[in-house]
Design a protein around this nucleic acid. Structure first.
Lengths: 224, 224
DNA sequence: CTCGTTTTGTTCTCGCGTTCACAAACTCCT
DNA sequence: AGGAGTTTGTGAACGCGAGAACAAAACGAG
């Protein structure tokens, strides 16, 4: 076995992985528009990146294009989907059914991309009456049973910051190994568990920084 | 004028800018806990980064620490807030009051970080009856008036993908120069306008990729 | 079959960001 | 006052990712 690493086991740079879903989306748009073939230039424009970067990214997956012609939209779409793993069905639990949890539960983009929300959990018993997006809101104590029953490996945390670490600990203990965290707090998890953070106010603060600089430099130019 | 660039006009690397809000949040937690002083090691742990990186990041702002002692929590907090621009009040409009728009309008994290939602807009007249987070949902046609009245420079797009480019165009025409986009589409805007994108399903797809690889490598180790 | 055109896949170079390591600066204790 | 112990700020080395540029491959026309 001194040969190549087989199949999907190659090493794809993190920056490329983050862009593959963008390419996938662009390909779906092209496919829906009836396009059968596209060049790296077209696809790059649709995805908002440079064409050289696109080609390099795709080359990590393999040689799926044809020189002089371009890429077969359906074929490339399937290959990227397979590489990311969205050809299969990923069960997901959402914990914390406040405003954001509601929005996430109803978000159609999950379903259409291979993610299936199997349960909505909340610690507050007052919420257990509710039905959101066709699912009962259940007690947080049901977590372990649900994870086992549906073989869930991805959890979404949409609780307030104070509860987030506890939720994460329980998730990890129950067997979840990937966490998408919307709470504004840095989670600590054991090795082998992936956490991605989405922080709405941080994005706004980054915009504010640049906005402030625009104002400063504009004033400086006025003065000169 | 061969001297230094004055005051806040230094050049802060983009990667550092993205971390400053994280440090700011960590400092607020420390301040609330009554901590007066902290070392780079402590703050780095609270922010989830390496201490050398933290020190280098802070050094771009200036020399706000004391060797042998550490950083004054309140002082550093103010300096970072000033650098980002969140000591002032940023008016924000949100367009698209569906599930996500609701969640954003009610998100307390904006208000507490110097952002004030001044208007909620939606193209659907059926929604104009509603009151969300204490604000009337208004017609999208009111955009220009609101931007002018409140001097808004930041807009949030929480519409479906098909509407997003139109909304962005109208925002830019009305004078908005920073856009936070939640719609799953690549926006094209003129030079000088900043766009940041938050895509919920992309984050999940990145997790799925790594999850899939965990499964593959685990099986490979079992076999060996 | 050959030549010109198109477009991919890849090599190379450059710049940015991360990390290490250490000198400079400050505090505290004796 | 002086020395030991901390902790910051930064210079230098390193690695990764972006973009330019080009060679290899496919297609089509004559």
């Amino acid at each position: 076995m001194s040969a190549r690493t087989p199949d999907t086991a190659r090493d794809i740079p993190e920056a490329t992985v983050a862009r593959l879903p963008v390419y996938l989306r662009a390909l779906i748009v092209l496919a829906d528009a009836g396009t059968a073939t596209c060049s790296s230039e077209e696809l790059a424009a649709a995805a908002g990146v440079n064409s050289a970067k696109l080609r390099k990214d795709l080359s990590y997956l393999g040689s799926y294009g044809t020189r002089g012609v371009g890429y077969d939209v359906e074929y490339l779409r399937y290959q990227i989907a397979r590489e990311i793993g969205v050809t299969q069905d990923w069960p997901v639990v959402i914990v914390g059914i406040g405003n954001l949890g509601h929005a996430l539960a109803n978000y159609s983009g999950f379903r259409s991309r291979g993610f299936r929300v199997v349960a909505l959990l909340d610690a507050d018993p007052a919420r257990h009456e509710e039905v959101v997006a066709g699912l009962d809101v259940r007690s947080f104590d049901d977590l372990e049973g649900i994870v086992e029953e549906h073989d869930v490996s991805i959890g979404v945390i949409a609780t307030p910051a104070v509860a987030a670490q506890d939720v994460a600990d329980r998730m990890v203990a129950a067997g979840i190994t990937s966490v998408l965290n919307f709470a504004p707090i840095v989670l600590s998890v054991p090795e082998g568990v992936d956490v991605r953070k989405v922080d709405l106010s941080i994005e706004l603060q980054i915009l504010a920084y640049h906005e402030q600089r625009k104002a400063v430099t504009a004033r400086a130019e006025d003065a000169s």
